[in-house]
């Protein structure tokens, strides 16, 4: 698998660290335990394109949002994770 890092170009998988689903958004300043529980634990597990967080640890140290097809590992898109 190769990831097209927006800073470094297409690079081998071994340079990246994986975190997981990019969808959950951290609830701001809330004490709503349900919202935080969902943020911490609930993850979609789609068969198909999936937006996920990858860290270019052995590269530019940028956190990326990578769109990957979970059926084929095809990387469709990679962008800076910063909103």
């Amino acid at each position: 698998m190769r990831i097209p890092c927006p800073f470094c170009g297409p690079r081998d998988l071994s340079e990246f660290a994986y975190l997981g689903d990019a969808a959950p958004v951290r609830p701001a300043e809330t004490s709503d335990a349900t919202a935080v529980f969902d943020y911490v634990y609930l993850r979609a597990n789609p068969a198909g394109p999936h937006r996920e967080r990858w860290y270019h640890a052995s590269g530019c140290r940028l956190w990326l949002t990578v769109t990957r097809d979970t059926r084929t590992h095809e990387v469709l898109f990679a962008e800076e994770a910063a909103p």
Partner: peptide
């Protein structure tokens, strides 16, 4: 910390 800084 990089995740917190860049994403959160």
């Amino acid at each position: 910390l990089e995740l917190a800084r860049q994403v959160l």
